[in-house]
Design a protein around this nucleic acid. Structure first.
Lengths: 152, 152
DNA sequence: TCGCACATAGTAATAATTACTATCTGCGAA
DNA sequence: TTCGCAGATAGTAATTATTACTATGTGCGA
């Protein structure tokens, strides 16, 4: 284990989280969780696999998939809804919303009280019980707009 | 072609749509479009393939995928954001929102003026240009709740 | 120290999606 | 009408993403 005070405390949180949910905080799981938390870009399993491999060279892709599924089941991480491409994960389980770039598929988190306070219309309450509200803003991120301008 | 007045007029619309976007309204494409529009449940390619096969027995799965990609590119249909499972399509390209059942993954459309009027916060405008706002309500639909109650 | 339950690595299997190629079809020009 | 061409399709192969399987490994309590 590398010396790192901040990650140490992060690990301690993770261990507590696991205890609460009755899952074992193994070395591999700790590293997968850490790798996910270290990113803002909602990576997929393959990307996390590559990242974790740096620190745990023997880890297998299956373990990454299996662990992410477990984490999701236990509410430690969330899947990001995407249109088509591979499944992606979000370490941020606080209430938040997403800005999705339709060009490069980058997903950025953001917070907004107005969105959180949205009241669900009557017609929907009739369809079922609503647990959460997620707002997805779609558009073109600054990076992609810059590239578009270059091309023209 | 089966006799059906309502579908005839629908076809005419489809043909107009295609002309506008410079794509050929072939028999297969017409049937795929019709099959998608006939459903409320945001089917995937495989499901549409099965449905279209009834009317065009020789159609190939590739054609369905290819056609749906084309339709999406041309803005005739939209992909539905899903968490993990196969990609699904929506023939409704009017502004609307989704209620997603976290158990059975059914997706239901709904309309709401309040949601449509949502103003995007300043912090996000800085991330890029926003084209559209989609609200996703997650919960358990009535059918699934009934089943849960049965089990207990 | 032993035994057991759970985790993991490595790989095989499955499922979803895309690519390839030969054939087909409709349309405009001769 | 016939010819030639561009685009579309069917059938299948290839690729990619995800899950399943199995033998081995590991930590922990008795």
């Amino acid at each position: 284990m590398q010396p790192s005070d901040s990650s140490q405390s992060g690990d301690r949180d993770f261990i507590t989280c696991c205890r609460e949910r009755g899952i074992k905080p193994t070395h591999q799981r700790t590293e997968i969780y850490r790798a996910l938390m270290a990113r803002e870009d909602h990576p997929n399993a393959e990307t996390l696999y590559a990242a974790v491999k740096e620190r745990v060279p023997t880890i297998s892709l299956d373990t990454v998939y299996r662990t992410l599924r477990l984490f999701e089941e236990k509410g430690l991480v969330a899947r990001v809804s995407t249109a088509g491409d591979s499944m992606r994960f979000d370490g941020n389980i606080n209430r938040h919303h997403h800005f999705v770039c339709v060009q490069c598929h980058k997903v950025r988190d953001f917070y907004d009280d107005d969105f959180d306070r949205l009241k669900t219309p009557q017609t929907i309450s009739r369809l079922g019980e609503i647990d959460s509200v997620h707002v997805e803003l779609r558009g073109v991120c600054n990076d992609c707009q810059r590239q578009k301008r270059k091309k023209t």
